[in-house]
Simulated scan of single mutants.
Amino acid sequence: MHKAWKKPLHKRKVWQKISVMGRMVYYMQPLLSDLQGIWLEPLPFPTLLKLAFSCLLCFVILLPLLFPILVVLFYFGIFQYVAEHHSWLSFDQNWDLLGAMSNLWSFEVTNKKYQLYLHMCLDRYQTIIIGVSTTLDYMRMALFFIFS
């Protein structure tokens, strides 16, 4: 951050003319360069770790947008709890955050056939993801040995 403020872009008159989106793009450049750097990492670094790091970095990039939404949802849940327990106010199904969260928390697949199908689908997708990432790693290694 210290390097960014020493750049000539941060002269007061120029910085005030830049839009908010332009400022966000300016500050996201280091994170995106990290994302580019992780995918250009040399061979022994596996693709699954690159994918996990990319997801973590995207979460960090989206955190300034997610945090206000989570704060608003948290305070709406507090307001809904107080309003339902201490007054006559009740919320309909579209605005019932606490009911939706309790349904989500207690969700369970009771049918054994559906449980088996869910496990089979999850296992299949896990195998596909691992197979594709391993194939990418082996192809990179083969190309590295061919062209080096």
Rank of each mutant, 00 (worst) to 15 (best):
M1E: 14
M1N: 14
W5Q: 07
K7M: 12
P8K: 06
P8N: 02
P8V: 00
K11Q: 09
R12F: 03
R12A: 05
K13T: 09
K13N: 10
K13G: 09
V14I: 15
W15F: 06
Q16F: 10
I18L: 15
S19I: 00
S19V: 00
M21P: 00
M21K: 08
G22W: 03
R23L: 13
R23F: 06
M24Q: 05
V25H: 15
V25P: 02
Y27M: 06
Y27G: 06
M28P: 01
P30L: 10
P30A: 11
L31T: 03
L32S: 12
L32F: 15
L35T: 03
Q36Y: 10
W39Q: 08
L40A: 14
E41S: 10
E41K: 13
P42E: 11
P42G: 12
P42W: 07
F45Q: 01
T47Y: 03
T47G: 04
T47W: 01
L48Y: 02
L49M: 07
L49H: 07
L51H: 00
L51I: 02
F53W: 05
F53Y: 09
F53P: 00
C55K: 09
C55P: 00
L57Q: 05
C58W: 12
C58R: 05
F59T: 04
V60A: 15
I61L: 14
I61R: 01
L62V: 08
L63Y: 15
P64I: 10
P64K: 13
L65Y: 09
F67D: 05
P68M: 11
P68H: 14
I69H: 07
I69L: 15
I69W: 11
I69P: 01
L70Y: 09
V71Y: 11
V72W: 06
L73C: 12
F74I: 09
F74D: 10
Y75L: 12
Y75H: 07
G77A: 15
Q80M: 06
Q80D: 02
Y81F: 10
A83E: 13
A83K: 13
E84F: 03
H85P: 00
S87I: 05
S87M: 06
S87Q: 03
W88G: 11
W88A: 10
W88M: 08
L89E: 02
L89T: 02
F91R: 01
F91T: 01
F91P: 00
F91A: 01
N94G: 07
N94R: 12
L98K: 04
L98I: 13
G99K: 04
G99L: 02
G99M: 03
W105E: 11
S106N: 06
S106I: 02
S106H: 05
E108P: 12
E108A: 15
V109E: 13
N111A: 05
N111C: 07
K112R: 05
K112Y: 03
Y114H: 08
Y117S: 12
Y117I: 09
L118C: 02
M120W: 12
L122N: 13
D123N: 08
Y125T: 14
Q126W: 13
Q126I: 09
Q126G: 04
T127D: 11
I128S: 00
I129G: 09
I129W: 04
I129H: 07
I130N: 06
I130F: 11
G131A: 06
G131K: 00
V132L: 13
M139S: 15
R140K: 13
A142Q: 09
A142M: 10
L143T: 08
F145H: 15
I146R: 04
F147I: 01
S148Y: 09
S148A: 12
S148L: 08
